[in-house]
Structure formats: C-alpha cells, structure tokens
Write a protein that binds this DNA or RNA. Structure first.
Lengths: 227, 227
DNA sequence: CGCATACTTGATAGGTTTCAAACTGAGTGG
DNA sequence: CCACTCAGTTTGAAACCTATCAAGTATGCG
C-alpha cells in the first residue's frame, strides 16, 4: 500500500533530478557517486562513505539510529535540495535509507566540494546557506520534540512538513511516510500519532480524506494546538 | 547560590580566553564584537546581529526559544569552542543568554569569516569541522529528546555533558546549570529531573555529594539506563 | 479471494505533569 | 552573630497522558 506514494513535484523524473543541486554540481563529476534506492533500501553506509557530503535530488530519505533496545529514531527526513553528511563527529552509526521509491542521492567528497568552493565563491555561499538551513531545521525539530503533549508534537510536525513540501496548495499535503515513520520522527508511538490525527480532525483543524491525505481546514486551530 | 559556579577550565580568565578561537581569529579584528555577560544576561539579539557568527570563548551560553504559552525551551548549551549563529533561516526568535557569570562571546560578520577562509584554507576546514560537530551534537540531542522515559533522557544528558566537559576526571562533573535549565533542555519538568537524579543515585549509577556535583559511580549502569 | 501491510480504536498499566509543601544553603541586613 | 530572605532543590499526592498489548478495519497486490 505504501510503495505507490510519491512526493508531488513539478519536475519530471530522470536526469532532471539534478535541478535541485547547486549549479556547480550540474555537470557530471567523476568523483560523484549517485545512488538510487527503492523504499526501505539503505542508500549509504557510514563506513563506506566517510568524508562524503550527499545531496538528495529526488524522493525522500530518512536518516536514523537504532538504539540498543531496538527502537528506531529518525533524526532527519531529507527532501530534494537537502544536504546530509554521515560523519559529523565521533559518529554513532546512523543509517541513510530511501523512505519512498525512486529516491536519489548524489555524494561528493569533501575535498571536491572544497575545490569547487575555491573555484566559485558563490557556490560556497550556496553550500553555507544549505548548511545553515539544515541547522535551523534541526533546531525546529528540537522544539517539536521538546513539547509536552503528543498532540502538540503532531501539530508541529504537520505544520513543519507542510511548509517544507511547499506545494501550490499549501493547505493540502500528501504524507509520503507512514504513521510509524512519523512516530519514530517525533518520539511518540504510532498509535498515539493515529489518535492525535483523529483528535485534530475532531477539533476541525484538519481533514483526512485518506490516511495519507491531510487537508488543513483551520490553520489557526493547528497553530494554537502546537503550543 | 548559583552565581559562584564556574566551569572548570585550565586556562586563566582574561585575554587568554581567545585560546578557544581558531587561530586566524586570535588577532583582534575591527569587525569583531566581543560581549561579556553575567548569568541571565542576554548577550545577543537576533535583530541586532543578523549575519553574524559567534564563538563562545569562555563561560556557558544558552540559546533558547520562548513558546507562546510561556514555556522556555533551550535548544543549545554552548561551551567554549562552540560556534553559534542566530539567523539560520526564516528564523523564529531565539535568545542567547549567559548561563553563568563571565561568559564571553566574540562575533564576526559572515563576510569577514569568508574573507579569512579565502585567505587561509586551513581556517576554512576548522570552521567546517566546528559546524559539523555542531550538527552532530544537535542530532545527539534529538536522540536524547526522542527517548521514551525521563530517566533515559537524564542519563543521556549526563553522559553527553560529561563527555563535553571532558575534564581530567571524566567521572566527576560539576553541573554549571540548574535543574530548571536541564529540564528545559531535555524537555521534562524540573521535578522529574530531581526524581531521576535521586533514582540514579538509588540505583548506584551516580552519587550527588552536592546538588551540582555529580560523580559517576557506575558508567555501565548509566549507559544501560540510557537505552 | 486471501494475504500482507498499514491504519484505527479500545483497555489497562505505568509514567509524568502539576500543584503543594518542606528543605537547603548562601547572601543580607539588623 | 543571627534571623531573614530568596533561589534552588527535593519529596509527596493526585490527575492526566501515553505506551503497550490487543483486536478490528481498510486497502492494495498477488
């Protein structure tokens, strides 16, 4: 039931996926590794790709950790245009997986990125901007996880994700991920995610024509619920 | 009772605080702004310092947001050597405050940083490393906030903070912050922080000679509790 | 048509927030 | 010097919320 979901996108599939890359990366690069994955496929391993920086060009990727007790925590959901790196420090083992079919990432060595920045300062500013956005998004996620009740977290997630998808219809969003993914992303159980969705519907904040189809009926209610 | 707490440090106070800056920033810079704050003082406002990058050189700073309902959430605790930026995107209003007395931050414009990187690639790699560490730490914080029970979060916080302080005695740490700060940092109530500390003591994981003085008695128990 | 996966709802046990009150220690002024 | 004040810490009790286990529903696919 899940495999058919795709992110709404204005760009056709195929080579044009490189549109979400910064311009200096348009041209093919011998040092670049491109990986395409179907839903659930691991598209990068930390050990094999140390020193690499990845760009998500299409689909949706999830970066997560598995706790010793078996719990999965998704630390990041990555959309086209997002940047991700798997070895930021004394790294715990994160996994990078395709969350939906036809997810493509392109990886460059950090050295190659440096060379390109040296050759084109404007490219450096683009990368800098992407990293700053990445930091800002992680902090917003911290705010969502720091909320007290589950419904606050779900409301926050919906608003954040709707803003990120930023489609032509900002009040209609198609969730590309399951309740399980949402649960592991905002740190509550999948059952509670369901209950909160139902409760938000009951309050008139959203409508759920289909489980993955969310319509924001009253954004004010949703924003009030968030806090 | 709080004002006397200082982070243990090997370096003397004063000018030498610049030791935690990357080398190209050692020399004074006309574009740099240096701010020193006592506990509770706001040391930077987002509006006044757009486009700036700050380096914490001594003390401890807290970056936090105030929710509409009045709740404070600390998204980051910043130690000497940490880098922080207040305008990462369509920024919500974060505050940057000194968490203890004699906290010093030095701010540079992003343009100045770019110039220094252009002049010295090695400096660029230092900054890059600092940013990557910053990202990695935010993700670890997400993992802590994503845990289910409160005692898991407290155990995770203690291990993370002990690692960051990295003193000569890795099993003895002096908390520079109150239970309230810890609570607002890991997203639980301050009373629950207390109860978890007591419970960890009862389990033989830690000892609390004083409220702010934590001794790790059995790291294995602490790490088991974390998951 | 039946299976597998995802979603939803129910009941219960357990944990956390909240409100309350007592305790501690440091600094202050009489 | 001591009582006082105040912020921080700790513990208690009750209400509330969530995780967990369980069962039932819906939907796409073979």
């Amino acid at each position: 039931m899940d495999a058919g979901y795709r992110l709404p996108t204005t760009r056709p599939a195929g080579e044009d996926c490189r549109q979400s890359l910064p311009s200096p990366l348009y041209k093919f690069d011998s040092t670049a590794i491109t990986k395409k994955g179907r839903r659930g496929q691991q598209i990068s391993s930390p050990s094999a790709h140390t020193g690499h920086i990845f760009f998500v060009t299409s689909g949706l990727a999830r970066k997560f950790a598995i706790q010793p007790d078996g719990h999965r925590h998704i630390v990041n959901l990555l959309l086209p245009g997002d940047i991700v790196c798997l070895d930021g420090g004394i790294e715990e083992t994160y996994f990078l997986e395709a969350a939906i079919d036809d997810t493509v990432i392109v990886g460059y060595t950090r050295r190659r990125i440096e060379e390109l920045i040296a050759a084109d300062p404007q490219f450096g500013r683009e990368i800098q901007k992407m990293v700053l956005h990445s930091l800002a998004r992680l902090e917003r996620q911290l705010l969502i996880l720091g909320r007290i009740t589950a419904i606050e977290k779900v409301a926050g997630f919906l608003l954040e994700f709707a803003a990120r998808l930023s489609q032509e219809k900002p009040n209609t969003l198609t969730l590309p991920i399951s309740r399980y993914d949402i649960a592991d992303f905002i740190g509550i159980s999948s059952e509670t995610v369901c209950r909160c969705m139902t409760e938000l519907t009951r309050r008139g904040a959203i409508a759920l024509p289909q489980p993955r189809q969310v319509t924001i009926i009253d954004r004010d209610i949703l924003e009030d619920t968030e806090h």
